Computed example of a mutant assay.
Amino acid sequence: MNEIPLQSANRTQVVVVGGGPAGLLLALLLHRAGIECVVLERRTRDYVLSRIRAGVLEQGTTDLLRSAGVGARMDREGLVHEGLDIAWRGETLHIDLRELSGGKTVMVYGQTEVTHDLYDALDEAGVPVLHEAEDVRLHDVEGDAPFVTFRTMATGERRIECDFVAGCDGFHGVCRATIPAEKLETFERVYPFGWLGVLVRKPPIQEELVYAHHSRGFALCSLRNPQLSRYYVQCSLEDRVEDWSDERFFDELAIRLPDRIAANLQRGPSIEKSIAPLRSFVAEPMRHGRLFLAGDAAHIVPPTGAKGLNLAVSDVHYLSRALIAHYHERDDGFLDSYSTDALARVWKAERFSWWFTSMIHRFEDDGSFGQRIQEAEFDFLASSKAAQTALAENYVGLPF
């Protein structure tokens, strides 16, 4: 663990709250630009590195990771995907991402691996990451001299003065909650189902992802590497993980897939199983004084479009650019436009994730009319290269 002594931690330029990929990447980019920062993380390092999260990286995300100097292992071990399949009524529609998006692709590389790479780079660079930081509180973020207080088991109460605070501490973090309610507007849609996900140490069902619509509900066949598969089925929010044995899960998954794809399914004991609810959420603005929100602290997307981590990275792109311009060029234009710039891309990703979720899941309350609308949507997608191009451009990631 890369801790810093108390006497050297009284002042820094940027305090980054949250040691997930967004916070770690921002800290690394700032350090590469000669800007001092400290990262505060509530959990232990082992806990952060044990979290199982998404693993489909947009072209812009991989490019930014390379520019930060953490792309070598990703390029060695990550899997470039040039397309995906959408299964419907027992047939599949192939979306050629590379052809339709003008040469862009996505990379399958787990968020846990990204986090490992970022930790290694920060360790090498000597950037301080303080773990088990409890009772984090932000002070005077509306003024010219903000500071952050917290405590750790090792050092007790702490105070760090800074120029700016980057709130990368997730949906349930303290940073967004620091903003007065009358100065923050939130938008939310909660979906009436969840995703039951299973991780299994077996080869994937096929090389590219399969998104499946079925009368029993949605299913997704994904992977982490050539020997580690990640599968999902739509489930009720009332379901518990204990309700789903491995046998029941794989039986249900096979039913929801076309026969020719289901025939390739290799079953095995699950090594991780969890249920995730789906929601869309945006908080505006993403700046309050000298506090800047990034990642899940400001927005959540349903996982259908694989946008969560990628949106966090795009926020980091805009915020690092703004802070570097402030310190290097005495130019606050990008700081002033940060929220507007980031939200423009956030809302486009929210729209795409909502559209994809709405098209491919089963909504029981929508009845027969809703089902026919979904069928018409898919038929239009299958018959229109323009519609497929729009899907591909959004899936590989809109430009920063």
Rank of each mutant, 00 (worst) to 15 (best):
A27W: 03
L253P: 01
A177V: 03
A298H: 08
R176N: 07
Q206M: 13
F164M: 11
R32V: 14
E134N: 08
R51M: 12
A306H: 01
E364K: 09
I86W: 01
P258A: 14
C175T: 13
L228T: 09
P226R: 15
G23T: 03
L64V: 01
R89Y: 04
R372M: 11
D46I: 13
D259C: 06
A376K: 13
A254H: 05
E142Y: 08
H288Y: 15
L209K: 00
V48D: 04
F250G: 02
V200G: 03
L265W: 06
A22Q: 11
Y191W: 11
P146M: 13
A219I: 03
F249R: 02
S270A: 14
F249V: 06
F292A: 08
T389E: 12
H139I: 13
G90V: 10
G170I: 09
E350C: 07
P203T: 09
D96I: 09
I261L: 12
E329T: 01
E113M: 14
V70W: 10
R290I: 12
E124H: 07
G102D: 02
E364H: 14
E208V: 07
L6W: 03
A22D: 02
I160F: 07
Q206W: 04
C235W: 04
S274A: 15
W195I: 04
D120W: 13
V14K: 05
E185D: 06
V136E: 05
A72D: 10
L118A: 09
L93M: 09
N2H: 08
D140T: 02
R372T: 07
V141H: 02
Y119N: 01
R372I: 13
V148D: 04
E77T: 08
N10D: 01
L343I: 11
E207A: 14
D135S: 15
C175Y: 14
G333Y: 14
G156N: 06
D296H: 07
